[in-house]
Each structure stands twice: as C-alpha cells, then as structure tokens.
C-alpha cells in the first residue's frame, strides 16, 4: 500500500487525537490547584503530595505491584509451556479442548471469569486474599502469554531445534540452549503484557479477593464512583507515566541492541579486509 494521501494523514491525526486527548487532559488536570476538576486554578503538585499521605492508596498500590509480579511470572511460565504444547506437540488426546481452554479466556467477559473463580475458591473452602488474586490473574494472563509466545514459535524454523538434537543435545538442553534464547523477546513481552493486565484488572480481582487484599484498581474504582477527584488524576498520571517510561525504555533498548549489532558487523567487516 503506497500513495499516502491527505485523507490518510487526516484520519490518522484525528484517530490519534481521539485516543490521546482524554489521557492528556487527565494528566494536565492532575496538576490543577483547584479541587474542582473542571475549573483551572493554576499549576500545583499538591495532589501528589497528598497522595503520599493516603495510606489506603499506597498500601493498595503495594498489593497490586506484588500481585502483578508474582502472577505475571507464573503466567509467563504456564503460557510458554502451553505455547510449546500447542505448537510443538502435534496431536494428543484432548488437544481440541486444550486449545479451546487457551483461547476462551481471551474473549470471556470478565464478570463470568471472576464469578466462576470465586465460586471455585468458595467450593474449595480456601481463604480469599493475595494468593487467590494471584491465581486468578495468572489464569487469564497465561492465555495472553501463550498467544504471544505461540506467534513467535510459529515462525521459528523447527530444524534449528532438530539441529541441536542432531548435534547431541537432549530435549531439555535443546530447549534451554537454543529454543529459549531465540524466543526470549516474546517471553519478555508475554511477561510485560501479563504484568499490565494484572495491574489493570478490576473485575476479576473484585471477585477473587478477600479481606486485606484490596488492589489499586479496586481502590480507584470505589473513589471514582463518588466522583472525579484530582487525587485520582494524580494516581492515574503516575501509572500512565510508569507505563510510558517502560515502553520507551523497552523500545530504546531494542533499538540500541540493533544499533550495536550494526556496529559489530561493520567492525567485523573492517577486520576481515
């Protein structure tokens, strides 16, 4: 597709304006002096300092972070295993059900997933809290992780693994020395995706949680229902800022890696002459 026209440029510009203006306004109004969200009272960072005093929000943030780290690690391991099963192990009894189980959580309405997990925990008679939220998040994130890793495995030349075995590496060694390093970027993005999904989730966590494990989205939600407050704007701005920095950092490091590769190649070329 070529021939970039004014129509194309305008649609992109309007589309991105629609995507970004609400976020931008939210960020700007987090620096508003006035408590009334719509009235501009001058620049101020007072809502950020009042955040630091809000212990409920801070402890919720800490819970969320811990849940996200543990559940995304679990989800990445399970998701990578699932992707390998789907791509590398051809037919086995129950494969159709398995691929359905990987696929369904991707589109399942959160209220259903959340409710069913809660009822499971009740039936199993476990105390709900930190670990039940971790399990809930790991369960739906692992499917996203599996999809990400699966996509990489599909365009992975299987003969590379065969070559490793042919040269004497048993399956587990082949996986650790050859497969894993090659799919590493997709495993990392699977982790990042699981991490943000966990950070973001309100509905499933609300069902799966118990006393003492209130996550940040739950806290934000309960305050948002009472109306817009600059404090929530400030929390949101911090979260947006962290994610943006993360994404920029990730793209910067990959760019630097490819630049380094280019330099290496030039150096080798120079040496070869």
């Amino acid at each position: 597709m070529r021939r970039f026209s004014w129509f194309n440029a305008t649609s992109i510009a309007l589309g991105f304006a629609f995507l970004y203006i609400p976020i931008l306004l939210l960020v700007i109004y987090s620096f508003n002096e006035s408590k009334l969200v719509t009235v501009w009272g001058g620049w101020s960072t007072k809502w950020y300092s009042s955040l630091l005093q809000n212990e409920g929000l801070l402890s919720a943030a800490w819970v969320t972070l811990r849940v996200a780290v543990v559940s995304s690690t679990l989800a990445t391991i399970l998701g990578t295993l699932a992707a390998i099963v789907l791509v590398r192990i051809g037919r086995f009894p129950g494969r159709t059900l398995f691929s359905g189980l990987i696929f369904a959580p991707l589109v399942m309405p959160e209220v259903i997933t959340g409710l069913s997990l809660l009822l499971l925990f009740v039936a199993m008679n476990v105390d709900r809290g930190f670990w039940t939220v971790v399990i809930a998040h790991a369960t739906f994130s692992m499917c996203f992780a599996a999809v990400v890793v699966q996509a990489r495995l599909y365009d992975f030349d299987k003969s590379v693994e065969e070559a490793a075995m042919d040269l004497g590496a048993p399956p587990v060694k082949t996986f650790l020395q050859v497969t894993l390093p090659i799919i590493a970027p997709s495993v990392i993005s699977a982790w990042l995706l699981s991490f943000t999904l966990s950070l973001d989730d309100l509905v499933i966590a609300s069902f799966a949680t118990g006393p003492g494990a209130t996550t940040l989205p739950m806290k934000i939600y309960s305050q948002v229902r009472l109306g817009v407050t600059p404090e929530i704007n400030a929390v949101s701005t911090i979260m947006i800022g962290l994610v943006t920095i993360g994404v920029i950092f990730a793209s910067y490091t990959t760019k630097r890696a490819s630049a380094r590769q280019e330099r290496e190649m030039k150096a080798v070329d120079a040496g070869a002459k």
Binding site: D157, S159, V160, E162, A163, A164, V178, P181, I182
Partner: peptide, 9 residues
C-alpha cells in the same frame, strides 16, 4: 539442514 538451521543467537 536444507535451511542450514544455524542458531541465530
């Protein structure tokens, strides 16, 4: 191998 199957990393 036909595709050479060199380890890219």
């Amino acid at each position: 191998f036909q595709s050479y199957a060199l380890f890219p990393h």
